[in-house]
């Protein structure tokens, strides 16, 4: 191997960068355009550890915390809108969320740990597309829209792979819109060490039609169409048991094999179904 391979220590000692606190979306985007290798900072709960491991070396960090329009939760008709910089703790505690999509409040309350929920944001989580993050299950399930500085992206088309999304360079999520379902539930199997989802399953029902979103199991969150078909003909545990879960694209690592993840998809789906 090459001489360049090196192990890095000095925890917390990041590469040097410039820091900017943007006060508007325009300012944030213009900073992004006009810096050599600028990076947006939302809650930082994934990004800062990444900096600390020196896995990223941005020239400039553009903090979005000062942009007022990225915050806030509101409902309008059947749409729940959550600003990108809204904290997990705020979603978990929000009366608006609890009244409209209580399962989303539950999901937010299961992310990471309390301290992380007090800093982490929905926009940051969704934009990161961590395969084991919780919010993506909701984004793909809840007839959602990801509203960005440039356009509206359909929730089911947002996640494109491991840490890959439909976002283009410089594009920023401003808010997420979820269509309020008739019923909804989320069941999570956390990794005992990291507390990320080994598997998370969200089930929602819209006018009698069941939708199932899965996170943790594969490279990014996805809709489990086979489960949906089964549940739409027979909304029962037995129907879930009868479904063949295709593990071809499932993650398999030291924390869980693909086969075990498939089992967890089944069990979490049953739990979510029971909690509907």
């Amino acid at each position: 191997m090459s001489a360049e391979q090196i192990l890095i220590w000095g925890g917390g000692i990041m590469y040097e960068f410039k820091y900017h606190k943007a006060s508007s979306l325009d300012e944030a985007q213009s900073l992004k355009t006009n810096t050599a290798d600028g990076i947006y900072l939302a809650g930082g709960q994934t990004l800062i550890p990444t900096f600390k491991q020196r896995l990223a070396a941005p020239s400039d960090v553009i903090d979005l915390a000062g942009i007022e329009e990225l915050r806030g939760i509101s409902t309008s008709g059947s749409v729940l809108s959550i600003g990108a910089m809204t904290l997990h703790a705020e979603v978990a505690a929000s009366t608006e969320v609890r009244d409209s999509i209580p399962a989303l409040a539950v999901l937010a309350g299961l992310i990471g740990d309390a301290q992380v929920r007090n800093r982490g944001t929905i926009g940051g989580s969704v934009a990161n597309s961590d395969p084991a993050a919780d919010y993506p299950a909701a984004v793909v399930t809840l007839n959602s829209s990801v509203i960005t500085t440039q356009r509206t992206i359909v929730g089911t088309e947002f996640f494109q792979g491991l840490f890959e999304t439909a976002l283009t360079e410089g594009e920023l999520i401003t808010r997420l819109e979820f269509t309020v379902p008739d019923r909804c539930a989320y069941a999570k199997f956390p990794n005992p060490a990291s507390r990320y989802a080994v598997v998370g399953v969200m089930i929602a029902e819209y006018s009698g039609k069941i939708q199932v979103g899965v996170t943790g199991a594969a490279g990014c969150a996805f809709r489990a169409l086979a489960l949906e078909d089964a549940l739409n003909s027979d909304a029962s545990s037995a129907a879930i048991d009868a479904v063949h879960i295709d593990v071809e694209n499932f993650n398999s690592d030291m924390h869980a094999s693909a086969e075990y993840r498939a089992q967890l998809v089944r069990v979490m789906a049953k739990r979510a179904l029971a909690a509907l």
Binding site: G12, P49, D63, Q115
Partner: peptide, 16 residues
């Protein structure tokens, strides 16, 4: 505590 909420000071930039 940051503004009364528990946070991990190792995962917050002082600039923030």
């Amino acid at each position: 505590h940051l503004n009364g909420m528990a946070v991990k000071a190792c995962t917050v930039l002082a600039a923030q």
